[in-house]
Design a protein around this nucleic acid. Structure first.
Lengths: 250, 250
DNA sequence: CGTACTTTTGAAGTGCCTCAACGGTAGTGG
DNA sequence: CCACTACCGTTGAGGCACTTCAAAAGTACG
């Protein structure tokens, strides 16, 4: 694996993007994440229906949220990357409404429920950054909803790869034109609302169109502009700061 | 139309569900919503790309969020009912990432940007209720994502009607077994990711199965339990309080 | 009472799914 | 190093759910 935290605390790194963090917030965050616990791939971090019980923070590795609709039908709701909260929702809504499972091995920091109020309801720039982070997650959800509802399978998959690459770049887990993809094609299928088989066919189709290459869990994008144009990818919904956007284009 | 605000300030009514409001919060909210502005149906309240500019609150009528994917492809992201914030996201993320349009005529209260910080970052039970409200919206989005990604058209539509009925009941715009639906079938199609034509056919199919009746914008549900079982509707994701749930079942 | 919009219906096409089998790749133990 | 196993990805054939296009019927509104 690459370095786990190429640039220090991943949560600081993530919230830095809000442009709201102050020095005391960084210290506060670092203090919260001091003793992460190692977890294996496929570990279920949160069960649907769990009552609120502190907050978990992704320190390294990847995880994903999902819902089970009926036996055999599962929708992956979102990807969790280092620096993400797992269950801020559950802490405030009292009850988890979906599952969270590790995708890769990783490490998780734990903030007890008693400290949650300090984080979220103190009149601090940190609370503001957490609002920002929550609303960003919601924005990503909206874009994904539109994608599943309206895009064809090829555009949908292309859009998925575009978002994945940017999000992994932000956390330093990708290089300029590609990344290691922590998903199997079956995960991807559950993510974009297609079948495993059709994902395989569609990836092939995108490769034949020279839009991207995806082999052995390695994604390579040849011409990013063309891929983004193909699927109508507009990163506005990721609410990146100017510098980040510039870095992406480079 | 029915009474616009059957039980006073709709925002108070909505946030009451969080179980977190205190008397000073109710007064605070009422003060914020004092002079709503009347708006016509189809008015666009927020444009994608708009810079943050205060917050709008639905006082009466209905609105909807949507994204345009390409010319002619639109996804409706969510329904706004009285008491909902329109653009809390935009106020904190700085920029609107989707459109909001009125579905019916209604009235909108406006909170200037200068007062937003008081609302969201004061260490108050109100700020806590707003967090709750935001996370609830996110929970609804997740459920909808799963629905569009995994359910067949008949289940998806049935689920849509189940959610619609409950949400309208909460704001006092429905009776126990039915409601006036503010959408055209074309809106519904854009909401659930199907075509207008297929929505029409699917509604017919649900009627033939005696699951519901939907004619002239009037939804009637004959056997709620059977409809909910049919589509796997589980209201957990709406995070209703005990009393609300009980009222629904009655 | 005519006009515009919404809903319904039919017929034909297609995108994605299902089922089933084969091929690749990685890990394990002999 | 090869054989074995398990999982993942690929390919083919056939079916069905949903779409598209087009036109008629129903409904709302001045």
């Amino acid at each position: 694996m690459d370095q786990v935290n190429p640039q220090g605390n991943p949560m600081v790194r993530k919230l830095e993007q809000s442009g709201l963090l102050q020095e005391q917030d960084r210290a506060h965050l670092r203090a919260l994440c001091q003793t992460p616990r190692e977890v294996a791939a496929e570990t279920i971090l949160v069960h649907e229906g769990d009552r609120a019980n502190g907050i978990r923070i992704m320190m390294s590795g990847f995880a994903y949220r999902y819902k089970i609709i009926t036996e055999g039908r599962r929708q992956i709701i979102g990807l969790l990357v280092p620096g993400d909260f797992c269950d801020l929702q559950a802490a405030i809504l009292q009850k988890a409404d979906h599952f969270i499972a590790m995708l890769t091995p990783g490490s998780i920091a734990y903030v007890p429920q008693s400290k949650v109020d300090d984080l979220t309801f103190a009149p601090s720039s940190l609370a503001r950054a957490l609002w920002w982070s929550t609303l960003l997650d919601e924005s990503i959800l909206r874009e994904r909803l539109a994608s599943i509802g309206q895009r064809r399978s090829d555009e949908r998959l292309a859009h998925f790869f575009c978002e994945l690459l940017i999000r992994l770049q932000i956390v330093g887990q990708a290089d300029p034109n590609g990344c290691h993809v922590p998903f199997t094609q079956e995960h991807i299928a559950d993510f974009v609302g297609l079948t495993r088989v059709h994902v395989s066919r569609t990836v092939k189709e995108l490769r034949l169109k020279n839009l991207l290459n995806f082999k052995n869990r390695r994604l390579t994008i040849l011409d990013r502009r063309r891929l983004e144009a193909f699927c109508g990818f507009d990163p506005t919904y990721l609410h990146l700061m100017g510098e980040e956007v510039a870095a992406m284009q480079a």
